[in-house]
């Protein structure tokens, strides 16, 4: 059984698999981002309360979803790396961290842009905004810790431990911030009490979510492959790849 696990985790096998999977992910991402983008940004009806500015959710919601799920994916990859010493898992965790931080920033930024016409301010200390900001700091910590070590192996293991500690803490932080918010502030603005969306509004949102996730998958596969080439550059099979005339 362990032989199978190690075979699946070997960089060479993963490189071949991702070569095959990646084009499909790109096609799915391009199709759904294109379709969802045009539908959501141009064809969907404007909100009767928020007008055109509600269309920011077609970027904001997928980014916010990814921001959280990328951290979980990163922590899972870290766990796999720490337990089974599978190098590919660490490479995946390494390339996921900047992407997750970028998505967290996108969610925060698009939320702020949406807040100006809707709430009349760039920032409120809302529970969700606050926990998103803390998530950004957690990402930055993982990235900074990995970069601080001169030995790649130590940096990888340290970042793995921190990602796992972080993922245990995320729900605690989330609930404590929610409690803090309900204590300290009366709800001046409400994110949650939106009128139920008609299908012409939420369908493009669903398509955009699929598009964001497939973009994430495609980009991760691409970046893991380049990470494999960089780290395994002296292996025989990588040199054999180079000899193929392009």
């Amino acid at each position: 059984m362990w032989a199978i696990v190690h075979k699946f985790g070997s960089p060479q096998w993963f490189y071949r698999l991702s070569c095959r999977l990646e084009p499909w992910c790109w096609v799915l991402a391009a199709l759904s981002l294109g379709a969802g983008g045009v539908w959501g940004l141009a064809l969907a009806p404007a909100d009767y309360q928020q007008g055109e500015s509600f269309r920011i959710i077609y970027v904001h919601v997928p980014a916010a979803l990814l921001a959280q799920s990328v951290f979980i994916a990163m922590a899972l990859a870290s766990l796999v790396f720490m337990v089974w010493k599978i190098k590919v898992a660490d490479m995946a965790a390494a390339v996921m961290a900047p992407f997750g931080a970028a998505m967290t920033f996108t969610a925060l930024f698009s939320g702020a842009v949406w807040g100006v016409p809707t709430w009349g301010t760039w920032w409120v200390w809302d529970a969700r905004l606050t926990s998103m900001l803390i998530l950004l700091f957690l990402y930055l910590g993982v990235i900074a810790l990995r970069g601080a070590f001169s030995s790649r192996q130590s940096g990888a293991r340290a970042a793995s431990v921190l990602a796992m500690v972080g993922v245990i803490n995320i729900p605690i932080i989330k609930y404590s911030v929610e409690w803090w918010y309900t204590l300290h502030q009366s709800a001046t603005f409400s994110l949650t009490e939106r009128p139920a969306m008609p299908a012409s509004m939420w369908l493009p949102l669903l398509i955009m979510v699929v598009g964001f996730y497939s973009f994430f998958a495609a980009l991760t596969l691409l970046r893991v492959r380049s990470e494999i080439l960089r780290r395994e550059g002296d292996k025989r099979w990588v040199r054999a790849l180079k000899e193929i005339p392009s």
């Binding site: 803390i134 700091f137 957690l138 930055l140 910590g141 900074a144 810790l145 601080a148 070590f149 130590s154 340290a158 431990v161 921190l162 500690v165 972080g166 803490n169 605690i172 932080i173 404590s176 911030v177 409690w179 803090w180």
Partner: peptide
């Protein structure tokens, strides 16, 4: 413990730890 091997771990330690301190601060 994560930063003890680094020559200048001081600021990095706070960057790693402060987000995790927030629940304790809240309660």
């Amino acid at each position: 413990a994560l930063t003890v091997g680094l020559a200048r771990g001081g600021v990095l330690t706070s960057l790693l730890i402060l987000p995790l301190y927030i629940p304790v601060l809240v309660f």
